[in-house]
Design a protein around this nucleic acid. Sequence first.
DNA 1: CTGAAAGCGCTAACAA
DNA 2: TTGTTAGCGCTTTCAG
Lengths: 333, 333
Amino acid sequence: MATLKDVAALAGVSVKTVSNVVNGYAFVKPENRRRVEEALLTTGYRPNLGARNLRRGRTGFVALVLPELVVPYFAELAGLVLGAAQEHEWNVLIEQTLGTREGERDTLASLGPHMIDGAIVSPEALEARDFGELAPGIPVVMLGEHSVDLPIDHVGIDNVEAARVAVAHLVALGRTRIAAIGAHPHRGTAAQRLAGYRIALAEAGLPVHDELVATALNYHRRDGAEAMARLLAADSPPDAVFCFNDLLAVGAVRAAVERGVRVPSDMAVVGFDNTEEGAYSVPSLTTVAPDKAAIARAAVDLLRRRVEEPERPPEHVRTPFSLEIRESTRGGA
Amino acid sequence: MATLKDVAALAGVSVKTVSNVVNGYAFVKPENRRRVEEALLTTGYRPNLGARNLRRGRTGFVALVLPELVVPYFAELAGLVLGAAQEHEWNVLIEQTLGTREGERDTLASLGPHMIDGAIVSPEALEARDFGELAPGIPVVMLGEHSVDLPIDHVGIDNVEAARVAVAHLVALGRTRIAAIGAHPHRGTAAQRLAGYRIALAEAGLPVHDELVATALNYHRRDGAEAMARLLAADSPPDAVFCFNDLLAVGAVRAAVERGVRVPSDMAVVGFDNTEEGAYSVPSLTTVAPDKAAIARAAVDLLRRRVEEPERPPEHVRTPFSLEIRESTRGGA
DNA sequence: CTGAAAGCGCTAACAA
DNA sequence: TTGTTAGCGCTTTCAG
């Protein structure tokens, strides 16, 4: 593998000149430039980015730390982050934490402060205060949970309002026993969505029945199915359900259908995330649609700004969302 | 950020000793070890992996090059590769090519031979011969398409046989007008699955009707829906369809249902990939289930062996698959 | 405009 | 057992 030195020797110039050509420095004698370019070609020189980075003190890598790639929301988001990062000439290192706190700690710790220029973290189990000690000196942008008190850049939607809108939609349909699936003791977003749910019910003058709030310790299809099974087994089952993500909703729909409960006539279902899966499922899923592309762009952008200017005050970017109304709350197929 | 030198100064020893302690070298005088460990702690030293790698000549990174993370099969596979790589202390850099040939070329080229120890590539548009020139000197393991003539490590299932088994299942159900969705002019796997489809029909003494073979230039849900719409609009529509991936199948089911065609009674559907989505869709999807964990493990393992021993003859690992029979070809819901 | 040389932080050969 | 030192390949003063 040819090095700068090899090229210089072949072209009969110093490494400096070669370096200048490679890095597009303007003032190089045309004759030298020509010879260097020729030598570059014949050697098939490729700069050693590791060495360059060591010298420059940056790596060209950012880490994207997320719970699980099998969760479509994260897969879609990851794809968008990859694209956004590419525009800033960043390569993305994806790390799965599997949602455990150790996973999230280890990941950030193991990369060390040297291999990455920064990290975009979508925390699940991680607590706010972990961040400081965890990634000392690593610029971090946080996704999802909104904790204004933390001095960390953050991007996400207004989860309370989004949940409120979703449940208000069910109310407007005339549903009165509206359940929620996805309550979770330690997840900030879960708490916020639950709050939105409660607000919507209160606004409608509907009581909050505790037995209609189903906990889900994971947000997979299976958990949604199990939660729905529990709700249906109760004395007076719900006539609608707001699920805290699309995966839960898909599982809930499946469990309902298996028991002969028709969606949406017997049971209206709203999800959250607007994954492509939900748009094609039968029935298609009404869902809260965060602007994922905006989230990805904002996160990468925020990270870039923080890298360039480490001392700037942390920023909280709120991205838009909409409610995507589909068959699971309509008459349709 | 503390360096080795800082630690050495603080502990009153040489960098060598500190390096020895950090790297777990056994023979260090206990007294020195103690002092170094203390200095390590008070400085909060973290090794600069970039520098270490520059010295060692390896990077600790592997690239996983795939078309799109929004495709659940790739998301699931990526998750498994991440896990398998972790066991070999590799970090994974995920690159999306968006299925274009340029994307695949650029990706491999841009990383350069220096930032990654190797690459696992799931090609879509890339042609066999591209590989040599593309990644000169980079150890590469190829996923998916099986091209024995290429001197490159490779892992995948027997696509011809898998397709044959899938279609034979439809035949056994008594279906006689069995369509295929997913024919593609340039994809090796598409050609193989089509071959398996033809073999199964031939074995059953069924004719191959060209109008029952639907092309799909992409393998997304939308493409499946469109293909199914075309098939249903024909004079004598099929009574079963074999889709070359689950996404196509999901789209096909949706298009059928929208037109009042019942699955499976009017139209049996088989997919390919065994994504979680298919297991929870309504009706749940019969599908060819490749052992994705085995693929991920084999790929990482093959890559490790190639990195260690660059001159070994290329290997072709064939991973197992099974046919997962669910509601879309059964009586069920 | 270009060359020589220092040095990013680390490992390893060689000495002591 | 530990210290000294030479690089890994690159960028970047500093001279010239």
